[in-house]
Design a protein around this nucleic acid. Structure first.
Lengths: 160, 160
DNA sequence: AATGAAACGTTAAGATC
DNA sequence: GATCTTAACGTTTCATT
């Protein structure tokens, strides 16, 4: 899982194909990567065991299930804390895991500490999340929101 | 593809399960959602045809294939253009599709026009992308970069 | 209209060359 | 890397509610 993997051209074709269709059969895969099905299967298993393929997921467009609003939130944490509590960073990171609206959270360089991608049903839902949950959390100093107007490019794909 | 879909509790359990493991067998799925395999299959096909499941993809962690650096770039476009050319927005959107480093691009509310997620091999690759490609593009006025220090939460999952 | 059980065709997985 | 064999799986059918 942690050793670096050498990928040849065939491996890259396999990864591109499986990032486009994670349920392609080995016969289909074999045809697109120009290899026999059994050799293709062995390479896929090798890639899975090496952690190059960490799993397979169904893609569910949020707007098809009633989550029509996506926002990016830059969050800045409190720099100090009450001495009997855990520090703001640990508190915040633990809280983020429990908030279903937050589908992605990364720590960033720059003036804001964290970037959150938040997926909600509508503006009411967004407003409740920010007012009642995020800003009420003791670790959070403030946040800035940008709403997504349009998806220009969205790929689950790593450009292997 | 465009009609709203009514999802019941079983549909939601199926979506959660397939977002966690897109290659679960129908026997496995059936066990976790408390339904027979054939009924589960019929519901999955219905969700696929309705576009609630738009596809299945293999997940490839960028760092496992040599893409160790992720950055978020806020991009501001030129507000005017040479009259004989297309406007900056159309130029930029078309260019973004051709840049493999840009795995995600959304138009945002707020002072910056676009947010890009950029996945690159290292700082040299990042630097070349920004200096030689992004900032040289006639549609781009300027950009601000934040590098990802740590993934706190990363889910492909819509919280259905 | 949706389900569950069983039968049938297809695919995955392992052994061998 | 390819071929062959068998076990597992996906899909259809049909009776049932």
């Amino acid at each position: 899982m942690s050793t670096p993997i050498e990928l040849d051209a065939v491996d890259r074709r396999i990864l591109r194909a499986l990032q486009a269709d994670g349920r392609a059969t080995y016969d289909q895969l074999a045809a697109t990567v120009q290899l026999s099905a059994s050799a293709t299967l062995r390479r896929v298993k090798r890639l899975e065991e090496a952690g190059v393929i960490s799993g397979y997921v169904a893609v569910v467009p949020p707007e098809r299930v009633g989550f029509g609003l996506t926002a990016y939130l830059n969050v800045r944490l409190e720099k100090h804390t009450e001495s009997h509590k855990r520090n703001p960073m640990d508190l915040f990171r633990a809280a983020v895991q429990t908030w279903p609206e937050v589908v992605e959270c990364v720590a960033l360089t720059g003036e804001m500490d964290y970037l959150l991608r938040v997926v909600v049903e509508d503006m009411g839902h967004y407003s409740r999340f920010v007012m009642d949950t995020l800003l009420k959390h003791p670790s959070v100093e403030d946040c800035k929101t940008s709403f997504v107007l349009d998806r220009v490019k969205a790929t689950t794909v790593v450009p292997v």
